[in-house]
Design a protein around this nucleic acid. Structure first.
Lengths: 129, 129
DNA sequence: CAGCATCCGTCGCGATACTG
DNA sequence: CAGTATCGCGACGGATGCTG
């Protein structure tokens, strides 16, 4: 779903409250036809929802669905990883808690035990063929 | 890094202990030239390491680096997401704790507060231009 | 402001054949 | 077992122009 050059960035911007076509366009510097294509595919994938917020003139906005909102932490985890292993000491964007201002470090755990997945021995179980 | 059709699947298989060219090839049904290309790019990305384990005949194996191992939980989180929002009730592969047999549910939290990122108000801070 | 239509270049994948 | 060489195709991104 985000295996292309732009979709992940669009979702990131959407999580920051961006909703309009032109906001995405100017924020990302993406060609309008490409943005249109990606917004459509993200909508069809069920992570964005197109909503008409004005009839005259007709205006649509794109907002994250629940599935889309639930995907944002994964983007955050990818960001955390990139900062650690590909940052190279350069200053990079990062997340901060909007209430305390503290830097956020994304970590993937097992929900029931609370243990980091990184240190858990696990097995992938395939469905019955 | 995994924005193509195969790299994520290769890393997944590598996390299950797969190391050899032909293991990946038969497991995934990928064309050999493509596999070669992807193994090279993943190696250059620093998530796989090529190691010679036999001199005569020359044999190499591909093993996850620390960066590669640290990426696996992110794949797990993506799998969890897909199961929830794109599974459609169909039987899918899932992770189990290898010691207890319990099903693992990946969750992204903030490391210092322990709160799920999903329910945290956050802000993306850009580096100084 | 919010797109769609068209055309075009590039890159990644797939199939096949071949090598040490 | 572990790749390389070659070819064709499709998907994606980019530029440009047009519409309501």
């Amino acid at each position: 779903m985000v295996g292309d050059a732009w979709s992940a960035l669009i979702l990131r911007d959407a999580s920051r409250g961006m909703t309009q076509f032109d906001q995405f366009r100017t924020s990302l510097g993406i060609a309008p036809n490409i943005l249109s294509r990606r917004l459509k595919s993200l909508t069809e994938a069920g992570v964005l929802e197109k909503r008409r917020y004005s009839e005259r003139p007709p205006r649509d906005e794109y907002v994250l669905t629940e599935a889309g909102r639930e995907f944002i932490p994964i983007l955050a985890a990818m960001g955390e990883w990139g900062r650690r292993y590909n940052g190279g000491g350069q200053p990079m964007s990062h997340l901060v808690d909007d209430t305390t201002g503290e830097t956020i470090h994304a970590l993937v755990i097992d929900e029931s035990t609370g243990r980091p997945l990184r240190e858990m021995p696990m097995r992938l179980v395939m469905p019955a063929a």
